[in-house]
Design a protein around this nucleic acid. Sequence first.
DNA 1: TATAAAAGTTAGACAAGCAAAACAAATATT
DNA 2: AATATTTGTTTTGCTTGTCTAACTTTTATA
Lengths: 222, 222
Amino acid sequence: MLSFTEENYLKALLKINLESGIAGAGTNELASMLQVKPATVTDMIRKLKEKKLVNYERYGKITLTREGKKKAIDVLRKHRLWETFLYEKLSFTWDEVHEVAEQLEHIQSSKLINKIDELLGYPEFDPHGDAIPDAKGQIKMRVQKTLDELMPGSLCKMVAVKDNSATFLQYVVKVGLGISTKIKVVSKQAYDAMLVIEVKGKKHTVSEKFARNIFVVPELKD
Amino acid sequence: MLSFTEENYLKALLKINLESGIAGAGTNELASMLQVKPATVTDMIRKLKEKKLVNYERYGKITLTREGKKKAIDVLRKHRLWETFLYEKLSFTWDEVHEVAEQLEHIQSSKLINKIDELLGYPEFDPHGDAIPDAKGQIKMRVQKTLDELMPGSLCKMVAVKDNSATFLQYVVKVGLGISTKIKVVSKQAYDAMLVIEVKGKKHTVSEKFARNIFVVPELKD
DNA sequence: TATAAAAGTTAGACAAGCAAAACAAATATT
DNA sequence: AATATTTGTTTTGCTTGTCTAACTTTTATA
């Protein structure tokens, strides 16, 4: 049985993996994601290595073992299913679900999470547009870019957000955005990469930081 | 913010209070309920006293303060609502709900538990027949006895169980019992208090220990 | 390639939660 | 009242997860 903390380390490792496409994280990276000091990470990683959940050598990169990845996916699945449950069944808003799901993801009962999955009709994506791993641990992959990668003139559709914090999500709504919203990139400032985008006929200016947290797929012009 | 352990101590104190009718528990009593050593309880109680959640003097009885009772009722409310949710919405059996609810009762989100309450239609009793405190902390009280207190010849209706363990609950089902089942006390052995009861026309012999864990209300003969 | 900066580790400390063992007080029993 | 039993406390120590501060290795850069 893993502790909450151990589960969180594994989840963080998987997230870094999924978001960067690169397997292998450093202690600083993990430390800043988990809001602890690098020294703490070193300790914990040694323990996870003992349990054969990560591969690790002194001064080397940290990767998940097959077993570790399985556990991590399990936690991620629970997190995203709970978020979907809160959103769909209990009318939480999308900026409220993350915090509560951080707690619920650690509940130990495979029967429970599978029943929740069933109740929701086996959803493939959570309220933030992220793919929900299925009971076998399979994750739907999607060819997606972040909004800042697009050239002026491009048309796209928002499919997910990278940052799940309430402040960011509330800002997203304010700009008229949401999952499936169409976006046109009007122009891009060379100096600071500020973007002018058009959403539902309205123009908005957003920062590069903002754009880097919006996942989109290209849309054919019509 | 209270830790899981602290919450469990408060809940145990409230349970002893509700079950015995007497406010005030000893360290041994608490220790056996929480499956820890009396020394551990002494430590914890001192900490809870620091936080003004219990009243306590060396070698004296432990009672909940107003604040402590409020917290304890909150945990109990969450426990019983989650049990009801699992039973009603996720088709768990009544012997499966307790274990998972032990985990879910510690989730911190008043919005979540109130939404679950709403989803369930503000139930008054959980699958074991125990009263669910409402959002204001009010608990429905019922005049109930345990089955072993009845005289031979009495008619009664089962309203709740005291022991929530899976083994006990499965045994209860085997004897044909459940919430609202009518029971007739046929006879009682003076030597060891073994009871012969009649349930749905069938006779069963049960131990005193078993009978002490069944709550009933008297039923008028018909 | 030498050196500075970044990244990572080690050692020592602390708080929480638990337990074993020795001790002290309270209560029952004879 | 003397003694035994029950109940409760204290002391010491383990484990987990965290930290700070000092140190080491790797990497980037001049």
